[in-house]
Design a protein around this nucleic acid. Sequence first.
DNA 1: GATGTCGATGATAGCGCTTTCAGGCAACTG
DNA 2: CAGTTGCCTGAAAGCGCTATCATCGACATC
Lengths: 353, 353
Amino acid sequence: MSRLEAGSHNEPMSYPTPVNRPATIADVARVAGVSVPTVSRVLTGAARVSEQRRRRVEAAIAELAYRPSAAAQVLASRHSKTIAIVAANTSRYGYAEAIRGVEESARAAGFVVIIVVVESERAEDVRAAADAVLRQSVAGVVVLKFDPPGVGALKALESVVPAVALSGIPEPGVPQAVLDESGAAAALTEHLLGLGHRTVHHVRIPPSGKEDGRTTGWRVALQRHGSPIPPIEDVSWEITTAYEVGVRLARDPAVTAIFCGNDETAMGVIRGIHDTGLRVPADISVAGFDDHPLASMFIPALTTARQDFAELGRHGTAQLLALLNGESPLALETLEPPIAIRESTAPPSGRRR
Amino acid sequence: MSRLEAGSHNEPMSYPTPVNRPATIADVARVAGVSVPTVSRVLTGAARVSEQRRRRVEAAIAELAYRPSAAAQVLASRHSKTIAIVAANTSRYGYAEAIRGVEESARAAGFVVIIVVVESERAEDVRAAADAVLRQSVAGVVVLKFDPPGVGALKALESVVPAVALSGIPEPGVPQAVLDESGAAAALTEHLLGLGHRTVHHVRIPPSGKEDGRTTGWRVALQRHGSPIPPIEDVSWEITTAYEVGVRLARDPAVTAIFCGNDETAMGVIRGIHDTGLRVPADISVAGFDDHPLASMFIPALTTARQDFAELGRHGTAQLLALLNGESPLALETLEPPIAIRESTAPPSGRRR
DNA sequence: GATGTCGATGATAGCGCTTTCAGGCAACTG
DNA sequence: CAGTTGCCTGAAAGCGCTATCATCGACATC
């Protein structure tokens, strides 16, 4: 540590070099007895350095516990090793899992992740998020395009910074990884229809745009079967709204099968049905979506579509990294969620119609 | 935009100023007809600028869609506006909620959040996380000290960078926000004992250290009542392990009440009990912990302790911000989780002993 | 009228790095 | 042995900002 003071001869003598100032590249160079650029070269591998000097530099780095400043590196090299995740939410199941997937892949590739929340789809919130991203000089962005704020953020960023979207609906444009929700939603609806239900009601979670893949798949399957299309029940992310919808639907004798936008909603709906005295699936069948970790523990275990959000995040990140490498990645990568038939769906009882 | 080229007279004429290069402070200064430091002054508010110039600068900023580079600001000012969240996991319920709380408060205070995952408690993983944090020149860190990796990361960082811990056990040392788990765990255990159970079994989730607050509270309550202390059942984060423990405990006729380390585990345990043909709470009572959003929707609804992780995150962040402001915050801030008695606990049936 | 005082401004010097660029040296040519 | 090569190396410049300092009027003071 005293060696850190070696270069301080022309500093005011009043106080010595602060002992805890983190070491800089100049400190390393001094200790190793080489020039600053040489240290930089061993750091970045930009050019060859003689074995002997490399060793001295590495020793000095270890001795000083030196860590290059990311900020300085970005400034000088104009290359950033951070990527931003832009999302409207960070803690709900699908979101959190997707973020986990992105973080894992990013870290594995030596990137650091910043997380930028878009509060709403209002222009000012979208702008605030975009500003935050752009000020950070990130290498690229992964946008969770699961909802209107996500859509807005993507629009604001796609032309300014390398971006990939994670989404539930394939769409031309930006590179994206998509979990094909509409196919799985249709399969689930058809499963219910195949059980003998005359139609399937739908409880919709806040959609990403005009209509999301889950709702579309449901509608398409009903149309294909010539089944009537009942009015959609909307819920918020607040699970009690699902509970209330469950209570309401249970009171309508025409309801025998319900397809819910996600598993949490399905659990709320089932609980609502349960509290009216009806049974799932004996009286009413309920299907969820996502295969939440608790879906198979719920009583009854949920019939649902298996969505691997973490995998989605990993794929998206891989695409972004490819993009940054100049490889032009497939603009679209689709994962097909398989469906899991469990206990919450069964043939209609006949007691209802 | 042509004004951007005003300063490029001595550049090679071969190609014009790249049109999409983001504007720098120098561009703003040129367009506004002021010096660079003046622009900096209106940006940071570090000194007064005449009304007239301030307007011109603001107009130029808007015209050029200028956003100061965070990296350059950090480098020049030695003050960072980013804080790091260090955590072993980002997507499990308590973790995700705590992260959400931190992010919200940080954003409200104008900070950007980077997320650093400590893979395990192994020295190399801890070091990797600490390195990542330190290279980013963050203003401070919030460490989720919920598990051994978190404990390790905190140890590695606390003396190097302003840090606060989020935890379940009050501990002297670093400033921290704590959810007093042991009190709530004891209350839950006492609730079960009060119902007439001879003792309470415990299913432990991966603990943060030797023993976490949930386990301690349980043990203390049993001791206080002079109840026998049954061997602890351990589960991993994988919910199927909880299921298996449920099956196993159901087969032991001595088991009439179970206190689980968290709600997900409780649901797995209940499902396991259910699949052996026994009923909760009729045959066995089960209590969870956390008040997961699904806890009240589960059938039976879970008796549990209400933990507000997001609030914990907000408190921790507030402490960190105070610390950064030089105000020395309370080194310890404790939130008391109240308990919620619901359907999954009841008096013993007498059919078991 | 000479002298301070003060607020607003710009010139200048870095922050900690990477990136030219030119030099030095050894190993090859012919 | 002069004339290339080619590889390492350090000097110097500069990334986009902020901090420090000197300057310059305008105004107040004696």
